[in-house]
Amino acid sequence: MLSLVRRFGTLIGFCAIIVFFWTQLPDTFMTPRNMLNISQQISMLAVVAFTMTIVMVMGDFDLSVGSMASLAGVAAAIVFSHDYPVYAGIAAALAVGAVGGLFNGFLVSYIGILPFVATLGTLTMFSGAAFLVSGGKTIFGRDIPSGFSGFARSGISLEWLGLQPLHLPYLTILAIAVLVLVWIGLEHTPYGRRLYAIGGNYEAARLAGVKVRILRMSAFALTGLGAATAGLMYASRVASANPTQGSGLMLDAIAAVFLGMTMSEEGEPRVFATLVGVLILGVLDNGLTQMSVDSYVREVLVGAIVVLAVASSSIGKQRA
């Protein structure tokens, strides 16, 4: 019994949350429209959380993802405002993400700073840089090309499913694509298996011939790239960019990975488990908003659920 709670507590909790909202909001919650809506709402968090999983597999963190998302969004907007084409803005944002991520990785892996400290530092740096290049203002309106902002508003028609006016949003599709890529990368390539090995025992992995330093740095680069992607998605969705718009992402992303970790026997991060974590946070947010629960109450609830999930997964672990 206890071991069931430990193993499936998080999944059971997730189902309970869904059932709860379903009964509370019988007309609006369990509808295709709302489901698609949730999928779009969480797509940015999902991309950040999926790529956050890559560093957490090694036992590391990246606290700078939120400010990196803001910085990347602002960078793209600046490029747009100088009348460059859409792909140039996207490339610039992704480049910023990759370089920022590499810098994090360099600090952690080659200089040897704890990830917590290193990325706390770069969090502030990236955020400052975002304010600097944007002049502290929101960039919007004519500066954002409609081709860019249109991406977030459209999707693939679901006519063939008989859901006439509904679209599967491109943002959702993008998040799914990232999910699949990260899943393949982490679990079905030597690259990902080595990252797990580093997380399992850094020294042992090194002595067994794993190139620990460069792998660790590259993982941070991927997380940075993910954060930049999320920043672009956000900018596209709100058709504007400002230096604080990504700031909520980091805590939620880490919480999502932690929620996911409670689902595996050995407490390892797995990207599909992270997906469940993201869904829990997304569904809660959506449901509570619809029930017009105060947003502060919402925060207390989300925090409590994370703690509860982690607690339930450690019940009875002390004495085997």
Partner: peptide
């Protein structure tokens, strides 16, 4: 300390 990833499987350890 130097050999095993204790929480990972026999396979993962043997093939690293």
């Amino acid at each position: 300390r130097e050999g095993l990833m204790l929480r990972r499987s026999i396979v993962d350890n043997a093939v690293l």
